[in-house]
């Protein structure tokens, strides 16, 4: 009996390691921890590793090269082609972002209307985004072919000169922008379509009562209603295109003709997998990351400043 009493007393005395309040405070962090760990493993580690490699001499073997500080950064920033690569990247990024935004909004507005076959049309719009890049590029190459392509057959049939859309400058850059935009616009379209459904009908009714025509309704009701999604689409596309997109260029023109479609991401790929210079490739990757961060920060600052002013 006394033994039981003693055990009970011990149980009462043993206090939890953390108090109730503290445990409640920790719960959100525990829920957040798996995500944080995944983010660290998937983002922080590769970025940290790339930065570490960028500070070391290029080496092809399993050993990391000697520590050389910022030499790789100096080398990539002072290479003669860097200004041209940066210019091409900016043109490509701006071109794709503008085209994707315009195509996304226009198709979303069309699909938002009620018409027979709307569900089928909504499904078909997704196709470019769903089809793998390689067949997409092969199809475009044939469509745009100078001697055998459909577009040139039509334009030539109408009495116009044939256009070499992949081997002429600036035609090649325009082509890679259009093909990339064609591939990516469904993503924007779906997001804009979802956003359109959140704009209250009352706003359109009020605008109509105020005598606003379709164009004025678009400018004063629809566009403000799409503002937050636009912000996200523009940011997502900018970062994606500026820092990562090169597959379509690699397959369509290989960066040509004469480097006119060569962008920083393609050069990073060349440094890593053609020249086997992992240090230089990592340095270039870090430069692209830094520029992307600057663009993002600037964009968000301007956006929030305008919002505050409004």
């Amino acid at each position: 009996m006394s033994g039981l009493r003693s055990q009970s007393a011990t149980t009462t005395v043993a206090a939890p390691l953390l108090g109730w309040t503290m445990r409640r405070r920790l719960v959100p962090y525990l829920f957040f921890a798996p995500t944080l760990l995944a983010l660290l493993a998937m983002y922080a580690y590769p970025i940290g590793q790339a930065f570490f490699v960028s500070l070391h001499r290029d080496s092809l073997g399993t050993r990391i090269g000697d520590f050389i500080g910022l030499e790789n950064f100096v080398a990539v920033l002072t290479q003669p082609l860097f200004p041209e690569l940066l210019f091409n990247t900016v043109v490509y990024t701006v071109g794709v972002v503008v085209c994707v935004w315009v195509l996304g909004v226009v198709t979303a507005l069309l699909l938002f209307r009620t018409f027979p076959g709307r569900f089928l049309a909504r499904g078909l719009v997704i196709l470019p985004w769903a089809v793998p890049v390689v067949p997409v590029v092969a199809s475009w190459q044939w469509l745009l072919n100078f001697d055998y392509g459909l577009f040139n057959a039509i334009t030539h049939g109408l009495g116009f000169d044939r256009l070499d859309m992949l081997a002429a400058s600036p035609g090649a850059m325009i082509t890679v922008i259009l093909v990339t935009s064609w591939k990516l616009f469904p993503l924007a379209s779906v997001m804009f379509l979802a956003a359109l459904q959140t704009i209250p009908d009352e706003l359109y009714e009020a605008a109509e009562i105020d005598g606003a025509n379709d164009w004025q309704q678009f400018l004063n009701v629809t566009l403000p209603g799409l503002r937050s999604v636009s912000m996200f689409v523009i940011l997502l596309m900018t970062v994606t295109i500026f820092g990562r997109a090169f597959t379509i260029i690699l397959l369509l023109t290989g960066g040509g003709p004469a480097g006119t479609t060569e962008v920083l991401a393609l050069q990073t790929y060349h440094e890593a997998f053609q020249y086997f210079r992992m240090g230089s490739a990592s340095a270039l990757g870090m430069v692209v990351l830094a520029i992307s961060l600057c663009i993002t920060t600037l964009y968000l600052t301007l956006l929030f400043r305008r919002k505050d002013e409004a």
């Binding site: 081997a167 002429a168 004469a258 480097g259 053609q274 020249y275």
Partner: peptide, 20 residues
């Protein structure tokens, strides 16, 4: 070889498809 091939491409295209 890889760097040389990139240079070959750039200069070859400059006269075949360009005006150099």
């Amino acid at each position: 070889a890889p760097q040389i091939n990139v240079a070959i491409k750039r200069h070859f295209e400059s006269f075949v498809y360009g005006n150099v």
